[in-house]
């Protein structure tokens, strides 16, 4: 079992790496699509700006890698920006994105009386029982830091929701793709459990 981590200069790459080391996962970090396509599972991390990040992905041919990987049926885990970029588009710099999941990344509004970014620990209410939440209590808190949130066109893909002014989708799953808006690599033992669940999968 080899986990590939997509390197596109995203901000939390190092944190994901240290968490995987701690979990004893067999992984490699790469920006090379020929190497990444050979992995058994893919982690698509991300902290950054959507427009810039899509440009970097395209320059490295990683936009096509992600689309091919999705079609291959092998598991993909998107984290934070990685959860927004898999949607059709983002309101951030009006960026067309990968279109693996039907939806758009919307901006939180100060008009809702909210502080932005949404930063800190917030509760994640599970919908259904996705395998990445195995042995994770419902409504446990996870660490968020983001100014945009995923809005699905088909809400039935949602696996969790979180409240911040509005109720937004904080996790979703479309076929072999699962994505979360929070940072499991920075959410203490429950976050590590989610990463471990993805690594170990359904077996």
């Amino acid at each position: 079992m080899k986990i590939g981590i997509v390197d596109y200069d995203a901000g939390n790459l190092r944190s994901v790496e240290t968490a995987l080391n701690y979990l004893g996962a067999d992984y490699f970090i790469s920006s090379n699509q020929d190497d990444l396509i050979k992995s058994d599972k893919l982690i698509f991390p991300g902290v950054g700006e959507a427009g810039y990040s899509m440009r970097v992905l395209k320059e490295r041919g990683l936009d096509n890698l992600l689309k091919d990987y999705f079609k291959s049926g092998k598991p993909i885990f998107g984290i934070c920006l990685g959860c927004q970029i898999v949607l059709d588009s983002s309101e951030e710099s009006n960026t067309p994105c990968l279109g693996l999941a039907p939806g758009i990344s919307r901006e939180f509004s100060h008009s809702m009386g909210l502080k932005i970014p949404h930063m800190g620990w917030n509760q994640v209410k599970q919908q259904g029982k996705h395998y990445i939440f195995k042995d994770v209590p419902d409504s446990a808190s996870f660490y968020f830091v983001h100014s945009y949130y995923p809005e699905l066109r088909l809400p039935e893909y949602g696996i969790s929701s979180t409240e911040y002014g509005i109720t937004f989708t904080s996790g979703f799953s479309v076929e072999n793709l699962v994505a979360v808006q929070f940072h499991p690599e920075k959410s203490g033992p429950h976050g590590l459990k989610i990463l471990d669940n993805f690594i170990k999968g359904l077996d």
Partner: peptide
């Protein structure tokens, strides 16, 4: 620290 604690 980064290797041992998994919070921000």
């Amino acid at each position: 620290v980064a290797e041992k604690i998994f919070i921000p």
